[in-house]
């Protein structure tokens, strides 16, 4: 390579070669690549910049399609936060996302492991069946899922009520109040501290918003792809050391699958954070409404409060950006190693 490296002392610098190609050609090629990449970056970033710019405009500027505000309206962020009760929605979304993501990792990891590394009758058929559920549009499954969740909620209510009855009778009201306060502080139950501990309802409560998403076909598929690539030698070594499937999963597979698990966490978080249709169906009151619902409130039938909606959007995507910032290395690695990249 050294003989091809361009040097400043070369009087014919313009015709110097690198890797057998003239330098000018190399520079033009690089320039073209940068232009194309720059255009791609612009396409990707422009909507984001537009959102940020619109978020600091007046309503009139936003509605008349201005590119930049005449005067930056920082107040929009405070207005959006207050007018749409964002504090409540952000808190709800955070709890919903936390439970959903935890449940997704907890249930999808062993399921994916079973599909990837355990031989059982009908495994491939079951996996194909599972994957086929990804092809069904959400609108089609909305009502059946709602009816299922309603039915499960009624069972849950009956069962937990029968469990709680003796508990409520057997403990002092002060203790009940303390338990309710703890549950309330965890944002897990809409309880009046003075009332007995209520049964676990699903509709208009966290179970309906989280449990249906804990067995995600996409997450299982992605983890299965990663787990299937783990060398058999590791399993053989683990067996020699006396490990069974559970120990192998927990002590070997999970630690070396951080990239794939991070990707699952990120996708599950984004899915949960952005969900709107399902939360609207299964909630009736404000308490468990997510942040996307807060954003929808800026659009009325007659038109949008676009400046506030964009301010709310900026607020809404901050957690996703923060999460991605801290996990981007694992996320990229996870995408690259699970066969999801194009």
């Amino acid at each position: 390579m050294a003989e091809h490296a361009p040097t400043l002392s070369n009087t014919a610098q313009a015709t110097a070669v690198e890797g057998g190609r003239p330098l000018r050609q190399v520079k033009i090629t690089h320039l073209l690549i940068y232009v194309v990449l720059g255009f791609g970056v612009f396409i990707a970033v422009a909507p984001f910049l537009w959102m940020v710019s619109t978020s600091v405009m007046t309503q009139g500027e936003a509605l008349s399609g201005q590119t930049f505000p005449k005067e930056v309206q920082w107040q929009n962020y405070a207005d959006a936060w207050e007018q749409s009760n964002f504090a409540n929605y952000v808190r709800s979304s955070a709890v919903i996302a936390l439970i959903s993501v935890s449940g997704t990792v907890l249930f999808c990891t062993p399921a994916a492991y079973a599909f990837a590394r355990m031989n059982f009758y009908g495994r491939n058929f079951l996996f194909a069946l599972f994957l086929s559920t990804m092809m069904i549009p959400e609108a089609v499954t909305l009502i059946p899922n709602f009816l299922t969740v309603t039915w499960l909620g009624r069972i849950s209510e009956t069962v937990t009520e029968s469990w709680l009855r003796p508990l409520n009778q057997g403990i002092a009201p002060e203790t009940v109040a303390q338990i309710n306060n703890v549950l309330n502080s965890l944002w897990l139950a809409p309880l009046d501290p003075a009332q007995p501990i209520g049964p676990l309802t699903w509709i208009d409560n966290w179970p309906a918003l989280t449990i249906p998403f804990m067995a995600s076909a996409f997450s299982i598929f992605m983890l299965r792809q990663f787990f299937a690539q783990i060398p058999d030698e590791l399993w053989d070594a683990a067996r020699i050391d006396g490990a069974g499937h559970l120990r192998f999963l927990v002590q070997i597979v999970v630690p070396i699958s951080k990239a794939a698990l991070t990707t699952v966490v990120l996708f599950a978080f984004i899915g949960s954070w952005n969900a709107l249709s399902w939360p609207l169906i299964v909630t009736n009151t404000e308490r468990w409404r997510p942040v996307s619902y807060g954003l929808s409130k800026f659009v009325t039938e007659a038109g949008p409060d676009m400046h506030l909606q964009m301010a709310g959007s900026v607020i809404t995507i901050i957690p996703i950006l923060v999460l991605y910032f801290f996990t981007q290395k694992q996320f990229t690695e996870g995408i690259a190693t699970t066969g999801l990249k194009g």
Binding site: I143, S277, E301
Partner: peptide, 22 residues
């Protein structure tokens, strides 16, 4: 009174509510 989204959202929600009888 409870805000339940757009007309489309409410149609979906009513459809589900009619099915569940609530």
């Amino acid at each position: 009174a409870l805000y339940q989204g757009s007309y489309d959202d409410i149609r979906d929600k009513m459809n589900a509510a009619i099915q569940s009888g609530d």
